[in-house]
Design a protein around this nucleic acid. Structure first.
Lengths: 257, 257
DNA sequence: CAGGCGAAATGGTGTGACCTTTATGCGAAC
DNA sequence: GTTCGCATAAAGGTCACACCATTTCGCCTG
């Protein structure tokens, strides 16, 4: 092991401009990329890993923090640091998109449109590829919606699961991840809205149209049905919540003058 | 058991009694959300800001590191920490998607399909909304492509700029960001391929078809032209680089015990 | 054999110091 | 008067060490 000649290697590696923590972060990324770190794996204790990588614990922690921020690692005090294991469809953290929306003033209209575009594409693919198992899942959620027309919260659960099922049927996990990313942001607003029974009935109908189009292997119809559904959902949401939704912290911790 | 669809939509800043650094991170996010921190702004020195927020410097650094990892903040030694200012279209960091691809073995086919879906949607929107300025930009890049049929590297520049211009014409910055995110990953491979002159000519033709469809306000034609273009581009790239996205795993028990 | 308790493991935070890089301003040289 | 260059300050990067908080798991007690 070359652990005492770090001084020389540091100089050589400095061509990569990488600060130490970035260098460590890259090393961990490489381990993941090469498959040496797999979902569910536990990393060695920070104190040990820091020694193995030849850096101090704070530096290693900075690297871990970077990867944790993008949802790849997860640290649990007392337990250890783990490579995130996603059951079901993997999901990208939506906070970067959320922050970018704040920074650049993205309108909710853009957000809805992005979701609509993604879900239309996904519905189209689902119509081409859905297996009987997928269709069964879709049908089940539709039934769940009709069964909970008087329970908006429960209805919403089936609603989300339906869209998840469509995404699963599309067979494209990347589009699914992107959809979830956008949907998560819109969801924060939606969970606060109380849908009327009439809206729920109509929503269930439109979901059923999507399902039937997918079942009939009609890609174009699936896209259109999904578009109609989301356009209506957008209108319903915008009519109920005309304001932007801002939690008044009121702390005034501002350090700006 | 199957209620994991809820986990996907969890938000960090829930009742989750965040650790100190998460708390600080949330505070900074709130500042951005409320517009107290704007692109280009410089944060106070870490030592001062730590005192203002009532935490130690390492804790504050952890929070800053988290936000830097998602591309919201950027620290420059000796200068300070700044809110990232994006010239041109804002872009999300692609490393999370890249890592997720490694972790879950996403195939390059899925990646291509995701890009295709996004760009088709974008092209469709562009056909509905492109202004004359947008059309001028598109036309200019097409001309650039034809002018550099014998210079693959230069051709690639115009190629990318064309797709950027289409995205700009779509008017949806979120879809644009997502497209860039996916395209950045595919680009790493593409920059290594050496396109033959015949391919470039054909590619330029297909770009022109996209342009004409957008100019003619024909959304469906724009989508189809973009699809045809990307399908061909995928075939060309895959034929030159036959290795897929399958990570070989290869055991690699480096530091595990 | 079961359950609780406590020690060890492990990540989280704080303090202080020093290094490296960048920015800035002052003075000297042209 | 302008410009170049160096000294100094500012600010992030790294490190060592100590201690706290939480989780885990084995041992001990009932």
């Amino acid at each position: 092991m070359t652990d005492l000649s770090n001084d020389i290697f540091r100089t050589i590696n400095s061509v990569r401009n990488g600060t130490s923590s970035e260098e460590v972060s890259s090393q961990l990324r490489e381990m993941i990329h090469r498959g040496e770190l797999r979902p569910g794996d536990r990393l060695p204790p920070e104190r040990d890993l820091a020694k193995l990588l030849g850096v101090s614990r704070p530096t290693l922690r900075a690297a871990i923090r970077s990867l944790a921020a993008v949802g790849v690692l997860q640290s649990r005090q007392g337990a250890g640091t783990f490579v995130v294991k996603t059951e079901g469809s993997p999901s990208l953290d939506s906070s970067p998109l959320r922050l970018m929306a704040s920074l650049h003033g993205f309108t909710s209209g853009e957000m809805f449109e992005a979701r609509r575009s993604l879900e239309m594409a996904i519905a189209g693919l689902a119509a081409e590829r859905a297996t009987s198992d997928h269709l069964a899942s879709l049908s089940e959620e539709i039934a769940g919606m009709y069964a909970s027309l008087d329970d908006p919260e429960q209805f919403l659960v089936h609603d989300m699961r339906f869209h998840q099922a469509v995404a699963a049927a599309s067979g494209n996990r990347i589009l699914t991840s992107l959809m979830n990313m956008v949907a998560a942001i819109l969801f924060d607003v939606r969970r606060k809205t109380v849908n009327r029974a009439k809206d729920l009935k109509e929503s269930a109908e439109m979901h059923r149209h999507v399902y039937r189009a997918i079942r009939d292997r009609n890609s174009e119809a699936a896209r259109n049905a999904m578009r109609d559904h989301l356009v209506l959902a957008q209108k319903a949401q915008e009519s109920e919540e005309p304001n932007g939704g801002d939690n008044g912290n009121g702390d005034g911790q501002s350090w700006r003058t």
